[in-house]
């Protein structure tokens, strides 16, 4: 009975919140607001009337990212992306908290096995390739598919490869610093949008020509920040998981 009540009360509260959110004036505003945003975006970015048709080189746009998905993800729905980055941070922090704390207690470093010659010889070159491709994907996020998340993952893969080849882990302090700084920079860019334009994470500055590399500068900046943050976080996650002591081996004296 108490269990049923304990389940029913939160459900009732959630139901009430949902009822007030989705009906009446609030719901009206929510859904009308959404369609208004859609209209605004299509008027500014995808209008099809011939004299005003957009193409490579079009100027005077609100956000000149040629990749419309990026324009939405980082500009019009930039706040959601900030939340997404926060979720990634929380996941990595949770894994670190659950696993790294145990290692600290044992106070024993992970045994280092020497890497094979193939790995040590090839790793710098593969890392160089992954580094260049990763940054290319990150910096072209406003033009082509990809962007900060896949590009950051590529950079992280390169760092993990270098880490496993050299045998010693990359500095956790530096990774944490990079992670924190990029997270701070994301919010700082958002506040800059609030200061120079009308809303948080709004695109400020000259948007440039559609399709050019130097277009939508704030989008480039945000994707660079996300790329650095994701690479630092994923490298850190693999580092944490790789350094955990296995309970079965600890039994052996």
């Amino acid at each position: 009975m108490t269990r049923l009540l304990a389940a029913l009360v939160p459900l009732g509260i959630v139901g009430m919140i949902a009822f007030f959110l989705f009906t009446g004036e609030t719901g009206d505003r929510m859904f009308r607001g959404r369609s208004e945003l859609g209209d605004t975006f299509s008027r500014r970015a995808v209008r099809s009337d011939p004299p005003n048709r957009l193409g490579p080189g079009s100027r005077g746009l609100e956000n000149a990212a040629a990749n419309t998905v990026t324009a939405i993800v980082l500009d019009y729905r930039g706040f959601d992306t900030l939340g997404e980055v926060t979720v990634l941070f929380a996941a990595v922090a949770g894994a670190g908290l659950a696993l790294f704390g145990r290692r600290r207690r044992r106070g024993k470093a992970a045994p280092v096995t020497p890497s094979s010659l193939i790995l040590t010889a090839a790793a710098p070159w593969v890392f160089l390739f992954l580094f260049v491709v990763g940054f290319a994907i990150v910096l072209h996020g406003h033009l082509t598919p990809g962007g900060g998340f896949p590009g950051g993952a590529l950079l992280a893969a390169g760092l993990v490869l270098l880490m496993s080849a050299s045998g010693h882990e990359s500095s956790a302090r530096r990774l944490h610093l990079l992670e924190g700084l990029s997270g701070f920079a994301f919010v700082a860019v958002g506040v800059a949008g609030l200061v120079w334009r009308d809303s948080f994470l709004a695109h400020f500055g000259d948007a440039g020509a559609l399709g050019a590399f130097w277009s939508a500068p704030v989008t480039i900046l945000l994707y660079l920040i996300i790329g650095l943050k994701v690479s630092a976080e994923l490298t850190n996650a693999v580092r944490t998981l790789a350094n955990v002591e296995d309970p079965t081996t600890e039994e052996v004296p």
Binding site: T144, G146, P150, G151, A153, A157, V238, L241, A242
Partner: peptide, 21 residues
């Protein structure tokens, strides 16, 4: 393309690395 890059890097690279560790 972007899903393919992510799948190749995370699914094939990083997850395999974690499993190997």
């Amino acid at each position: 393309l972007d899903v393919a890059i992510t799948q190749a890097v995370v699914g094939c690279g990083l997850t395999t690395a974690v499993f190997l560790y």
